[in-house]
Simulated scan of single mutants.
Amino acid sequence: MSEGFSTVDPEGVPEEQFDTCETSVRKLTERLGAAELRVNQVIVEPGEVTTPHTHEGQEEVFVAMTDGQIGIEGEVHDVAEGEVVRVHPDTVRNLLNHTDETHVWLAFGAPPVGSVEDFGSYVVEDGD
């Protein structure tokens, strides 16, 4: 691997769980040597729902590696394999799976605020 280029096979990265839900994640940022964005592979099994949240100051892009579903401001959107979703920092979003198939996403966040261990500007709304 050179300093200007890197690759990673997500299948070779151990799965971990997010702190806020049971969904699995493969952390790719460090393995890629990324310094200007955060990169994760998110695996959403049937029936799973990630925590609705925003990221103060961080825009996110989600790439559907399989057909998938994303919640935007509480509304579920079906996303076809290969489609790309951009989400504004202030927009409440979450990944979910109301199907019988596993959904796989690549999630990119820039600038790289927070991490899977320390979400930093990750904001979960109170359920009042």
Rank of each mutant, 00 (worst) to 15 (best):
Q58T: 10
T54D: 05
A64N: 11
M65H: 08
E30L: 08
I70E: 14
E45F: 07
H55T: 05
G71E: 15
V39Y: 01
A35I: 00
R38G: 15
F62Q: 02
E36N: 12
A64H: 10
R31M: 15
G68E: 12
E45Y: 06
G33Y: 10
G33T: 01
P46K: 00
E30D: 15
L37D: 04
I70P: 15
V42L: 06
E59W: 05
R38W: 06
R38P: 01
H55L: 12
T54I: 08
D67P: 10
R38E: 12
E45A: 09
E45D: 07
E45M: 05
F62T: 08
V39M: 02
G47Q: 02
H55K: 13
V49R: 07
V49A: 05
A35E: 14
G71L: 15
E73V: 06
R38C: 12
G33I: 01
E30S: 14
N40I: 02
G71I: 14
D67L: 13
E30I: 03
M65Y: 07
V42N: 03
A64Q: 12
L37S: 05
V44H: 08
V63F: 13
H55N: 13
H55Y: 04
H53Y: 05
D67C: 14
A64E: 12
A34S: 15
T51L: 09
E60M: 03
A64R: 14
A34F: 10
I43E: 04
F62W: 13
T51W: 03
V39R: 00
G71Y: 09
V44W: 11
I72N: 07
E48Q: 15
T66H: 07
V63N: 11
M65K: 10
E60F: 06
E59M: 03
I70N: 13
P52S: 10
F62N: 13
E45R: 14
G68M: 14
P52Q: 07
E30Q: 13
T51S: 09
P46S: 01
V63R: 03
I70Q: 10
I43P: 01
H55W: 08
T51F: 06
